[in-house]
């Protein structure tokens, strides 16, 4: 459903992504793993049009999408969360989700100028849907809190709720489990698996190996901007190059 071909992107002299190709199947969970700076977030930015690749192409449902603007790509059905959290901190939690659903609403600028605000049928529906999503992610309690006041882990969950509100076909999750405790992580994994059963496709960037291995159908391992291994979780775990890359990182993190 989403296919990346020979994607290359460099910043200044530094090659962040080097001829990366990968394929996300419909109804599957693809995990992108690798040490910090391996180029995972860059791939997300390229897919969502935040930055433009130097070379290569991205196809979504057979349509080439690089060179489209970020909002156009999102409108095609690609939603994402941000690793470094980009919540609308000046809105409440439920409002964040409602804004996420905005593109489907019929509230046009000029229409809004002449219509009394207050709860239209559509807005009420939007609100109900938003509450439903919050409920699924266990955020109902916080619905009317300013989004910026949420604990870190819950902010990540809200990012997911907001991305889902846009009714995507594929969801890109950038480290969704960071900041969650092991219990919450497991709950999240169950939730994400549930999404796949509902027909969503997922690509996730994750550090937490347990989540990745239990969840992913396919794993792509990156290091220094290139794909060093890919396959089913079990296969990848045995790959020596992968083990080396990860051991190397753990040493770095230890210092």
């Amino acid at each position: 459903m989403l296919e990346i071909k020979e994607l290359t992107k460099s910043f200044g002299g530094l090659i962040a992504v080097n001829r990366v190709s990968l394929k996300a199947r419909e109804g599957g969970i693809l995990a992108l793993i690798g040490p910090n700076g391996a180029g995972k977030t860059t791939i997300f930015n390229l897919i969502t049009g935040v930055s433009q690749p130097d070379e290569g192409a991205i196809f979504f449902q057979g349509r080439r999408i690089n060179r489209l603007l970020p909002f156009q790509i999102a409108a095609l059905g690609i939603s994402r969360t941000f690793q470094n959290l980009e919540l609308f901190t000046n809105l409440t939690v439920v409002e964040n989700v409602m804004v996420g659903a905005y593109r489907k609403s019929r509230a046009g600028f000029w229409k809004s100028v002449f219509r009394r605000p207050g709860a239209t049928k559509e807005d009420r529906l939007l609100y109900q849907e938003a509450l439903g999503l919050l409920d699924q992610l266990g955020l109902t309690l916080y619905a009317d809190e300013p989004a910026g006041n949420l604990p870190f882990g819950q902010q990540r969950l809200l990012e997911i709720a907001r991305a889902l509100a846009a009714r995507p076909k594929i969801l890109l999750l950038d480290e969704p489990a960071a900041g969650l405790n092991p219990n919450e992580s497991r709950e999240l994994a169950v939730f994400l698996r549930g999404l796949v059963n509902q027909g969503y496709s997922l690509i996730l960037v994750e550090h937490d190996m347990e989540t990745v291995m239990s969840l992913a159908d396919e794993v792509v391992v990156m290091n220094f901007g290139t794909v060093i291994a890919s396959g089913e979780p079990g296969e990848v775990q045995q790959n020596t190059e992968v083990i080396a890359a990860y051991l190397g990182e753990e040493e770095e993190e230890a210092c």
């Binding site: 970020p70 999102a74 919540l87 000046n90 809105l91």
Partner: peptide, 18 residues
């Protein structure tokens, strides 16, 4: 509400198709 959202994070607003 959408304008407020854009104020807070234009990137995130774009990412949900605005």
């Amino acid at each position: 509400r959408v304008f407020k959202a854009i104020h807070s994070s234009e990137r995130a607003a774009e990412a949900v198709g605005i």
